[in-house]
Each structure stands twice: as structure tokens, then as C-alpha cells.
């Protein structure tokens, strides 16, 4: 038996919208720790890891570890039927081939029930070791989204370079080239507007902008994004979900040969 109740139901909508651009089908795992997911895109270049900790839910019951294969577009269709202020309860049963979503309006005058078919998913899971990164950039998530969108209209790849001057995003395409430098800036009214650059070693890596733009679908989840870079590792683009967990995207770099 599995039962999860989330008063801030819109959060679940945002989570699904954040990842469905990258993966179509995914296996959600439920355990005492929380509701989690790890899925790779079809070309095995990018990976999304989601964690919603059990403590973040208003009610969390998970009697046994359970994996549920879901089509994210179908999930989005169901969740779109919930009002933005609705309370969402998610239920599943061992051995069942469906899950159910219940949406309650804040005043309890409308209650909707939806049942969604599960799917069999043969998912490959990767072990992601804890790592020390050469550089960690924290910046407003809307700013990062804007940069990826702007550069995406000029080129296909972005070079992200971190030096003690700040972080530079560069691209080159048929019509020309672009460089955007963001300097460390902590002198702001609100902490979420700050840009910080933590650098152990300078690093410069190239990534496909198509994937970066896909990651920015998670922007509504968090005011800040953390970009962790190391020349030996895929980049990690992390959106923290307040009091609940995170959505992390991993992307393998492009290399010159």
C-alpha cells in the first residue's frame, strides 16, 4: 500500500513538467526515504535524478519498496486536471497495474479521482558516485534559462568556462558568435538573485544546448540553479525543491577529437 498526500499539489505538476521533455517513460521508486526517480534520455547522454523526501509530504505511507513505470506525458495530462491550489493524493497498491490521483480543492467542495495505467519499464540504473567538482556556480534559475534560450538561437553548443573572473557561456553558429559573462554578485537585495562562483580549478567544457534548454523546464521549481563542473565528469544542473529534495540533471560533455 502506498499513499502520498501533498497539500502543495502544484509542486507535482512542476516536477513532471520539469522532466517530461527529457524522458517519456520512467520508473518511479517509492521507499521509506521518499519518492524518487532516475531516468536517462533515449540517447543515453543525459540523466535526470529526482528525490522528494518522505518528510516533505503531508502524509506518506509506503509499506514496501515499490517501483511504478509511468508515461510522463500521460501523468502530465492527469495532473493538468488538478487546480493549482488543489491537494493531491497519490495512491498505489502492490501488484496493481494502475495508480490513482485524487485532487481536492482547498475548500473541499470538489473532489476528483483519476486512475492511470502503469507500464512495464526496463530501466537501466547508473551508480552516481559523490564527487568533488572543480567549480560550482550558483545563479538565479531564470537567468540561466534566459542564457540557454538566447544562446540556443545562435548555436548548438555552449562552452561553459569558469575562471576567477566568473562564469562565461559562449556559443558559435552560422550567423555569428556570442559570449555572456556572469560575475560573482552577492550584493543583492534577495539571496535568490545572487550569483556565486566557487572555483577550485579553472574549467571549460562544451555541452549541447538542446539538453541545457530542456533542463531549464525545471526553472519554476527553484529560484536558484547550481551548476557543478569538472573536466572528468558530466555536468550537474541542480534545482533544489524547498524542504523536499531536488531535481538533478547530468549531461555528458562534448569532446573534440
Amino acid at each position: 500500500m502506498l499513499e502520498l498526500r501533498l497539500v502543495q499539489g502544484s509542486l507535482l505538476k512542476k516536477v513532471v513538467d520539469a522532466i517530461r521533455d527529457l524522458v517519456n517513460d520512467a520508473s518511479f521508486d517509492c521507499s521509506a526515504t521518499g519518492f524518487s526517480l532516475q531516468a536517462m534520455d533515449s540517447s543515453h547522454v543525459a540523466l535526470v535524478a529526482l528525490l522528494l523526501r518522505s518528510e516533505g509530504f503531508d502524509h506518506y505511507r509506503c509499506d514496501r519498496n515499490i517501483s511504478m513505470g509511468m508515461n510522463l506525458n500521460n501523468m502530465a495530462k492527469m495532473l493538468r486536471c488538478a487546480g493549482n491550489d488543489d491537494i493531491i493524493t497519490f495512491k498505489g497498491d502492490d501488484g496493481s497495474d494502475t495508480v490513482s490521483f485524487m485532487f481536492e480543492s482547498p475548500t473541499q467542495d470538489k473532489i476528483s479521482d483519476f486512475e492511470m495505467k502503469l507500464m512495464d519499464i526496463d530501466s537501466e540504473r547508473l551508480g552516481i558516485p559523490e564527487a568533488k567538482y572543480q567549480a560550482i556556480v550558483r545563479m538565479p534559475s531564470t537567468e540561466f534559462a534566459r542564457i540557454c534560450k538566447d544562446l540556443g538561437s545562435i548555436g548548438d553548443t555552449v562552452v561553459i568556462s569558469v575562471t576567477k573572473e566568473g562564469v562565461k557561456f559562449s556559443t558559435r553558429g552560422d550567423i555569428g558568435s556570442a559570449n555572456i559573462v556572469c560575475r560573482q554578485n552577492t550584493d543583492v537585495d534577495k539571496p535568490e538573485q545572487a550569483t556565486t562562483v566557487e572555483m577550485n580549478d579553472p574549467v571549460s567544457l562544451t555541452f549541447a544546448l538542446r539538453y541545457m534548454n530542456s533542463f531549464t523546464k525545471a526553472t519554476p521549481l527553484s529560484n536558484q540553479v547550481t551548476i557543478s563542473l569538472s573536466s572528468e565528469l558530466p555536468v550537474v544542473v541542480e534545482y533544489k525543491i524547498a524542504e523536499m529534495g531536488y531535481v538533478r540533471f547530468y549531461l555528458a560533455p562534448k569532446i573534440e577529437e
Partner: peptide, 14 residues
């Protein structure tokens, strides 16, 4: 030429 790496080269399968 620039080639796209895949994740399998960095992370192990569980």
C-alpha cells in the same frame, strides 16, 4: 569535430 560523449563512460551500471 566535436563528438557527444555518453554517460556510460562516466557512470557504472548498477
Amino acid at each position: 569535430d566535436i563528438f557527444q560523449e555518453v554517460l556510460a563512460g562516466y557512470f557504472d551500471s548498477k
